[in-house]
Design a protein around this nucleic acid. Structure first.
Length: 422
DNA sequence: TCTGGGGTCCTAGGACCC
DNA sequence: TCTGGGGTCCTAGGACCC
């Protein structure tokens, strides 16, 4: 049976999540900012219409924000993560074969659903998600994932589709592909766009017709797959079981520049703690740690960035171990005389925690450490992240990122439940 | 004053082995 | 004169994604 994919994508996801809990903002421009309230990472349609671009720094659009009373939110990942889960659970009711592709997107396999009118089925899905979660979605349907992405884009931009577009049921496919700029094709980024444009390839339709040898040479195997997908040959399967994670990162910009080793040690050790928590949550342990730091490239003055990779010799998920290594790393690369903007801790060579190798020369009491970590996680789950933490992570944390416009955790914290007044 | 964070996959080139 | 070649593993860097 030939495969059929649907791509379901939440419209302006973060902005829409904020609006669900602030219905007075219906029809108003909304933006959501990145960590530290740095850049715009989500915009409602009204904000897009004002010309606010994705990724612009907030300080550059302040006059626009004031002039049009744009509603500004800091990002609230607890809220978005919970809303995402509700959307995915709803989709599962309609189609058990589902791949959660990102926080706001899922691919469904509609292979074998052809006895139905797929556009109608999509409309039912869309209406149900809206009713159960309050969030608007768009749905694109086609015989490959890459084409489903394009169908989704058409659904989103063409109001009379009612938010659902089935490329299989469409008679003028070539005309539509001819209107899709090549940079909007899934898998074509800035650099490939430049290369393709230099060779006169400007649309999805033109990309589809490119010679296979040429594409293999210039865009590699990934590019070749992409072209085949545009031709309707499915090369990317639905991946229902996510592959095990290969790396785990905590990297953050500071609330203000750091210029002392002591403060840098605090930050890095708190990032290492965060990585340790994520490891334990995923029942993983890590063997190789990379610690990095960097100054602010947007500023004048001397720049420095560096990283160091440490082999931990034994896979671990212990906060104490990881802090110790992160401090060793940061001391190796820290140089006096710079204003640092950001640091990070990355763990790689991850293995399931149950399969960690015992090291004969490892003198530590692993059982004791494990009990300590369980207690630490339990307290922080119950009383809030960071209730218990290692002293090396600092008490004042002056370097921590700022969130001036954060909305409450409406759906995950009893104290923040929205209140309905009659 | 103020510019995010967290991932994956592929490729080219070097080291090493036989 | 003229000095192999193929396979594997590892790593750094590039490109892309949301």
């Amino acid at each position: 049976m030939p495969p059929i994919f649907a791509l379901v994508d939440c419209n302006n996801f973060y902005a829409s999540c904020e609006r669900v809990f602030a219905p007075r903002l219906e029809g108003k421009p909304i933006i959501v900012l990145s960590n530290n309230d740095g850049c715009v990472v989500a915009r409602s349609n009204e904000a897009k219409a004002l010309g606010i671009a994705m990724g612009v720094p907030e300080f550059q659009i302040r006059p626009l924000i004031r002039a049009h009373q744009v509603q500004v939110f800091s990002s609230n990942y607890t809220l978005y993560g919970d809303m995402s889960q509700r959307v995915m659970e709803t989709l599962e009711q309609f189609c058990p074969d589902l791949e959660i592709y990102s926080i706001d997107e899922a691919f469904l396999s509609l292979t074998g659903f052809t006895s139905r009118n797929l556009t109608d089925y999509g409309r039912t899905i869309r209406a149900t998600v809206k009713r159960w979660t309050g969030l608007p979605v768009s749905i694109g349907i086609a015989e490959t994932k890459t084409l489903a992405k394009i169908a989704n884009r058409i659904a989103k931009r063409t109001p009379d589709t009612g938010g659902v577009f089935d490329l299989l049921a469409c008679s003028d496919r070539d005309a539509l592909l001819g209107r899709v700029p090549v940079e909007d094709v899934w898998g074509i980024g800035r650099n490939h766009t430049r290369l393709l444009n230099q060779h006169g390839i400007k649309t999805a339709l033109q990309l589809r017709e490119v010679d296979e040898q040429w594409i293999r040479k210039h865009l590699g195997i990934v590019g070749l797959r992409l072209v085949m997908e545009l031709r309707g040959v499915s090369c990317l399967d639905l991946e229902e079981c996510p592959a095990p994670k290969q790396s785990l990162t905590c990297s953050r910009s500071f609330g203000h520049p750091i210029s002392t080793l002591a403060e840098m040690e605090e930050a890095v050790s708190s990032y290492a703690s965060r990585v340790a928590e994520k490891l334990r949550r995923g029942r993983l342990a890590g063997t190789v740690m990379t610690v990095s730091l960097t100054t602010n490239e947007f500023k004048e003055g001397p720049q420095y960035s560096n990283s160091v990779t440490l082999n931990l010799s034994v896979a671990t998920d212990s906060t104490a171990d990881l802090i110790k290594s992160s401090l060793r790393g940061i001391r190796a690369i820290y140089k006096e005389g710079y204003n640092y903007k950001k640091a990070g801790v990355i763990l790689t060579s991850l293995v399931p925690a149950s399969q960690t190798q015992a090291d004969l020369f490892d003198a530590q009491d692993r059982v004791k450490s494990k009990r300590l970590m369980s207690a630490l996680d339990a307290v922080n789950d119950r009383w809030g992240a960071g209730t218990l933490h290692y002293a090396s992570s600092g008490i004042t944390k002056r370097w921590k990122a700022q969130f001036q416009h954060r909305s409450p955790a409406y759906t995950t914290d009893w104290a923040a439940l929205p209140i309905v007044t009659a």
